[in-house]
């Protein structure tokens, strides 16, 4: 097993346990938002985004909690496999790609620093854009992830710690998701509706914003991994 690097004072280790906390937090947030996401999807999709996402994250939590600690990259890769298998529809490969890309591009083995995580998220965004041929403004998950990653990079560049940077990134991602409402969908099934897709917030952008919430939670409360297992 790799020897964990000593995290610098005041910063948080981005390691296997971080991924566990992150995925647990995402599972919680998606469960809370399940009805909301399904309602959004009922307007411009198949009304299954909420249930697909909670099914996927429940599976990811179970798989990851059973997986040995092989480092942060391996943990993300494990989650990617769970999500591709369990989510289904278009969201399975898209969310799976986010995590699989983190697993592939982060330094293997030991923990990584905040800049490496941001670089991994940038790679994940690029991979999602290649898979879906989507750009900002197409009314997709890219509309939340792109501003989220950009704000994370900007704040880390200004010397903010990870939790503070993710706090800003979360707000940017949610603003991005909200800003999809007036847009006409240009990708995915919602694009079938053409002009009728206007006036509805994109479900994929909405769930993607919660990814930043969960990252922020994982970066802010290093004790919750064990606590979350208590009844």
């Amino acid at each position: 097993m790799a020897i964990p690097a000593e995290p610098s004072k005041g910063s948080i280790a981005i390691d296997h346990a971080f991924v566990v906390r992150f995925v647990q937090a995402l599972d919680e947030r998606l469960s809370d938002a399940e009805t909301f996401l399904t309602e959004l999807d009922a307007a411009i999709g198949d009304a299954d985004h909420g249930t697909n996402m909670t099914r996927g994250l429940h599976a990811a939590v179970i798989d990851l909690e059973a997986a040995p600690d092989r480092g942060v990259a391996a943990a993300f890769a494990e989650v990617g496999r769970s999500l591709i298998r369990a989510i289904g529809g278009a969201s399975g490969p898209l969310y799976g790609t986010v995590f699989a890309t983190l697993g592939r591009t982060l330094p293997q083995g030991g923990p990584v620093d905040a800049r490496a995580l941001a670089a991994g998220l940038r790679e994940a965004l690029d991979a999602v854009q290649r898979l879906g041929a989507a750009v900002v403004g197409d009314k997709t998950m890219v509309d939340a992830i792109a501003p989220g990653v950009a704000e994370l990079e900007r704040r880390l560049g200004h010397g903010h710690d990870l939790a503070t940077a993710l706090d800003g990134a979360t707000r940017a991602a949610h603003e991005g998701a909200t800003a999809t409402t007036p847009l006409r969908a240009r990708k995915g099934r919602a694009s079938y509706l053409g002009v009728r897709s206007e006036g509805h917030q994109d479900p994929g952008a909405s769930s993607s914003a919660l990814v930043f919430d969960a990252l922020h939670a994982a970066a802010s409360s290093p004790g919750t991994s064990a606590d979350a297992l208590l009844p």
Binding site: D46, A47, R189, Y192
Partner: peptide, 12 residues
């Protein structure tokens, strides 16, 4: 039996 978008009238 699942809920699905009705695609009658859409342009692909």
């Amino acid at each position: 039996g699942s809920r699905q978008m009705r695609e009658i009238g859409v342009d692909l």
